[in-house]
């Protein structure tokens, strides 16, 4: 029975059903993108992309997504460390809560943010009158909304990296006299750099594409809160050519990010 087995191994043809279904999946996902490209006003693309509204949105998106990524790094890396390294009761609940925004509809996130940080919100009412800090309708509010929605992507990626890392390096650092804080700073973070970079990139891309939470919580005003996705939305009402041009920009950026991530995201260490 050796011969047939050998023959089978030499021709590992994938089952036709799987190939057909997989192909359908690919077509389903790529077709809308092809349609978008096909409708693109290629000739005016240059002039569309330098319009003030477009430039404002592009710049605002870069700034806010960058800031949201920064905040996520400062809060999210320690959070991932605590989730991966500190045993405490309720850790699973905390992890579930922290990653909830990943699956929550962004509109719900926006409404929840309003109830928390809005003028009459749980915390917002104390920020508004005594302190004069107003998050809705401000660029800071955009960053808050983006951070809320995008930080879990960083936390999840970094925590996976931490769980895959060899903890005995931390033991080795302790035997050399390093406190846990020193170990975190000089060992854990640098050794985790690839996972942190991947998480940050993913977080940035998610923040860049954020729409629902932003428009609900931060409103929609050119130059202040109208990011790229909101500009697409606004342009759809009047200037469809500009909307398509902006959409193309978003698609290209997202595609570049995913290509940069391909190894790390699909095969974390």
């Amino acid at each position: 029975m050796t011969a047939p087995r050998l023959a089978r191994r030499r021709a590992p043809r994938p089952p036709l059903v799987l190939v057909v279904l997989a192909g359908t999946g690919v077509v389903f996902v790529t077709l809308p993108l092809v349609a978008l490209v096909q409708r693109a006003p290629w000739r005016q693309l240059g002039s569309l992309l330098v319009r003030p509204g477009v430039v404002d949105a592009l710049w605002l998106s870069m700034v806010t997504a960058g800031a949201a990524t920064g905040v996520s790094l400062v809060l999210g890396v320690p959070l991932a460390w605590v989730l991966a390294r500190v045993e405490f009761s309720g850790r699973r609940v905390v992890r579930a809560l922290v990653t909830l925004p990943m699956v929550l509809p962004p509109v719900v996130a926006g409404v929840a943010l309003l109830f928390a940080f809005g003028r009459r919100g749980l915390v917002g009412q104390w920020l508004d009158t005594p302190l004069g800090i107003l998050l809705p309708f401000s660029t800071t509010g955009v960053v808050v909304a983006q951070t809320f929605v995008a930080m879990p992507f960083l936390v999840v990626t970094v925590e996976a990296g931490l769980r895959g890392a060899d903890r005995r390096y931390e033991d080795a650092a302790a035997t050399l006299g390093a406190s846990r804080w020193t170990t975190f700073r000089r060992l854990t973070v640098p050794m985790l750099a690839p996972a942190i970079a991947a998480g940050a990139l993913l977080c940035w891309a998610r923040a860049l594409g954020e729409f629902g939470a932003t428009i609900t919580f931060a409103g929609n005003l050119q130059g202040r809160t109208r990011t790229l996705p909101l500009a697409v939305f606004a342009a759809l009402e009047g200037d469809r050519e500009a909307a398509i041009a902006l959409s193309l920009v978003l698609v290209v950026i997202s595609l570049v990010v995913l290509l940069a991530l391909r190894d790390r995201w699909w095969a974390p260490r």
Binding site: R168, D171, A173, A174, T175, L176, A178, S179
Partner: peptide
């Protein structure tokens, strides 16, 4: 705690910190 004990530990697979040079590995302690 470990970091306050006057010990030196050579691990079986050494556990040299991969992101640091030999010099910085030794300077770490």
């Amino acid at each position: 705690p470990t970091e306050q004990r006057s010990i030196g530990y050579v691990f079986q697979d050494y556990l040299l910190f991969p992101h640091l040079s030999a010099l910085d590995n030794v300077a770490f302690g």
